[in-house]
Design a protein around this nucleic acid. Structure first.
Lengths: 345, 345
DNA sequence: CTGCCATACAGAAACGTTTCCGAGAAGCAC
DNA sequence: GTGCTTCTCGGAAACGTTTCTGTATGGCAG
């Protein structure tokens, strides 16, 4: 005989009363409640989660699914750790715990998700790295499991998501460069398999057209989102005839590699080539000349994710009014020296 | 009425038999088992984890605790994701699931651990970023919760841990440099608060003494384990009178910053200064000249961690014989060009 | 036919918790 | 005294699963 029963016997009180006392339910004398709390503290009693979950049909655990994709591992940034900080700042207010669920690389992410959800180990899910067509979204919608996605997708119709403001960033970057007289603006981006590689480049194209500039497919340099990719992008850039005078990097870590390649070729970033990076990256912060880039708080993004998720959960939706369930997350321009290069006609 | 009961009714069989069929227990006709499995697949039945945990007293979940500590953040996500790959390769064989438990930065890691364990949400724990004195280890030992630690500690007496072979690496690096004629060998390391900053430098000192070289405290450059730290280390190095001819970097990411500082000063790594990095880091892989460093497979480290843990769990110890429960994980020298610089007397 | 074993299944208890239902006691108005 | 709340608590059911115990069946030896 363990658990709440022992605690009840120790207090000579029924287990029902003990349970109500511990869970801040009414129908329990204030003095009794104090006695119970004191005894629980003294005996180190903590409710068994399995029993509670079984009875309540809820686990009070939110899952953050993580794919150990090639890209994630290679980039090796603190993306998830930073986001979890924001998530937890919200969840702890509601006694919800966050667990990160790493999908084994040899298991289909969709199957993994199904397994985790079917076993009822979490109440709700946060998924990221969404594909343009993502079976997980269809599944979660149909199974009526509360979830929120970091990233848009064409799947599933209307569902809660948050995504970065690629359009805004691309427009801002292009406008800034055009204002400095640039006409041939290259862009380094990953392949179109990845949603970002598609959406961002499309936004770039639209921005160009708004400024009456022709869209030259040669100026799209498809490389990996890494330092090495940046180095390769530099090589590609140097090879282009009628060389561009500016380049937009879709992932800022590329800047480190690009700088290296430029220095090797005697091209000085900021003086001979304007460079703008997309997302702020701590490791690129010490570059000289400093990089013009777009900044966002991953922690704040995390809190917004959490709030969006809770708003979609019946038990919490009262506290987090169900406004727009989709958010385009804005980024802030952080001007640096890397795009100082100005074309004077 | 849901779950196994519905499945049993659908098959017109008792729930006991269904349960045994699903769990590969004896006392069930082979044909019946097939029928049950087929029906479960058809109806999409998956056992509710709460019910199962409650009955069995076991959750089949292993927790990997993650602290958003200084060191962790610098390592980045890829460190843990690589390790989880190895962990899961073992766990999946036993139908164990891995969850990562990120300790909120505003909660005491020890309290967080206690909470997770007391609620019986995991059967066992993997902890990392161990402190020289670590309350978690004492707690887990006393509570008889199976666990394994990545990193040594002075706490808790005899407990299962795995740690990297700092001594071996320091000895090998020093020996290699001494053989090339170097006499003044600097080392860039984090502060002694971090276990690594203490143990590694101590091993370096011992290695020097074995070769009859004097230990000069000025040659210990205390910087952060980051690119920026490497850059600072470069500045410090250049300032030293009787400048060292070689430097050992305790974290390879420093090399990127160090290289930059050296190039700025007209010092060519590998030609004018010998450089050896401690741990291989994908982000530093493209450096020129290539870095001499020590390599380890994080994935293999993960499998060893998992095996060590399972060996300490009664339910699995038969399969993973309890050998030495402590492992000094060896690293492999990956020779590059960065330490080609040789002193000829 | 009896006795005995092995096989295959049904039935029920148990895991620890929450929550529903009912009831005793006390207070108050009539 | 009766009737009606209000407060506090005890008892028991329920959550979904695993596992223990019992039992019917059939085969086989005696």
């Amino acid at each position: 005989m363990k658990g709440i029963r022992q605690l009840a016997k120790h207090l000579d009180i029924s287990i029902g009363t003990v349970s109500r006392a511990l869970n801040d339910k009414p129908d329990v004398n204030e003095e009794t409640r104090k006695r119970v709390l004191a005894a629980a503290e003294e005996l180190g009693y903590v409710a068994n989660q399995s029993g509670r979950s079984l009875r309540q049909g809820t686990t009070n655990v939110i899952g953050l699914m993580i794919e150990a994709s090639q890209e994630t591992v290679e980039n090796g940034d603190n993306f998830f750790l930073s986001v979890t900080g924001g998530l937890q700042s919200v969840f702890t207010r509601h006694k919800l715990d966050l667990v990160m669920l790493p999908c084994p690389s040899d298991e289909d992410p969709h199957e993994y998700l199904k397994r985790m959800v079917a076993r009822r180990v979490v109440d709700a899910m946060i998924i990221s790295a969404t594909q343009r067509i993502d079976k997980r979204i269809d599944f979660l919608s149909k199974a009526k499991i509360p979830f929120v996605a970091l990233g848009r997708s064409s799947s599933g119709g209307n569902y809660p998501w948050i995504d970065l403001d690629f359009e805004g960033v691309a427009a801002c970057a292009v406008e800034r460069l055009v204002a400095k007289g640039h006409r041939r603006i290259a862009i380094a981006a990953p392949s179109t398999d990845i949603n970002l590689g598609y959406v961002f480049v499309d936004a770039y194209r639209q921005a160009l057209e708004r400024h009456g500039l022709e869209f030259d497919p040669d100026l799209i340099i498809r490389v990996k989102s890494s330092e090495q990719g940046g180095y390769q992008a530099g090589t590609e850039l140097l090879r282009l005839k009628d060389r561009p005078t500016a380049i937009i990097l879709i992932y800022e870590l590329m800047a480190i590699g690009l700088y290296r390649r430029m220095v090797e070729a005697g091209v000085v970033p900021g003086r001979d080539l304007a460079v703008i990076g997309f997302r702020e990256e701590p490791r690129a912060r010490f570059l000289q000349p400093t990089l013009t880039c777009f900044r966002l708080s991953l922690r704040d993004l995390g809190t917004k994710l959490a709030e969006t998720l809770l708003a979609s959960m019946p038990a919490y939706s009262a506290l987090y009014p169900k406004g727009a369930q989709n958010t385009i997350w804005p980024l802030e321009l952080a001007p640096g020296e890397s795009d100082a290069f100005t074309i004077t006609p």
